[in-house]
Simulated scan of single mutants.
Amino acid sequence: MYQRLFARDLFNDLERLQREVSQAFDVSSSIRGQGRGGYPALNVGLSPEAVEVYAFAPGLDPASISVDLDRGVLSLSGERASQTAAKPENAGASGASVAASDARSIVHQNERFSGSFRRVVSLPDDIDPDQVQARYRDGVLRVTIKRRAAVQPRRIDIH
């Protein structure tokens, strides 16, 4: 009755199924949605002079961000208010409520993070807790923690 033109390869079908299942449960970072690390996204870098932590958090009020350093652990916390309008409760019940709902938009999908956040970073033992600076500019929080001078590598001349 029904005959295939090409033989099916069971292993190719299983590989395709595995790819589809992996994509369905994928939590890797992408342009749409939150990555594996949470909000805000962090970059942490070390140099001989300092530890640099960059938190990418556009649209926040710097006063709503808390930066704490306690026993070698840096904590970044705060809150981002929701920017979306609430859906009218009686939308569609009467002509007046429909006209009122036309004045504001109804959100069907919201991918922007809102709410409280907290990120914690363990720091090396050689940091100087008295030498910490935090700056927020263009949506990026930059925290610089100087390292102790005695621990920094140095070149020793041979005479």
Rank of each mutant, 00 (worst) to 15 (best):
A100Q: 15
K146W: 03
N90G: 10
G78L: 00
I127N: 01
R4W: 05
A63V: 07
L74V: 01
V73T: 07
E79R: 15
L123P: 00
R19L: 08
V120T: 07
R32Q: 14
A50Y: 00
M1A: 15
L42C: 04
D157A: 10
S105K: 14
H108S: 05
R19P: 05
G115C: 13
R32I: 07
A86P: 02
R36L: 03
Q83P: 11
A57V: 04
D125W: 08
A86C: 11
V151K: 14
S66H: 06
I127H: 01
D157L: 14
H159Y: 10
L76R: 11
G115L: 09
S47R: 10
I65A: 15
A7H: 13
V120I: 08
R80S: 06
D130G: 15
E20L: 14
Y136A: 01
N90E: 12
R147A: 00
P153A: 04
Q18D: 08
F117M: 13
N110F: 13
A50R: 13
T84G: 08
G33V: 02
L69Q: 00
P88R: 05
D13A: 07
A86S: 12
G95T: 07
R147C: 01
I65C: 01
A81K: 15
S22N: 12
Q83F: 13
V27W: 11
E89A: 13
S29H: 09
S114I: 09
Y136E: 01
A63D: 04
P124Q: 08
Y39D: 00
S101A: 09
P124M: 01
E20Q: 07
P153E: 00
L69Y: 01
L74Y: 00
E20Y: 06
Y136R: 10
R148T: 05
V21H: 13
D102S: 06
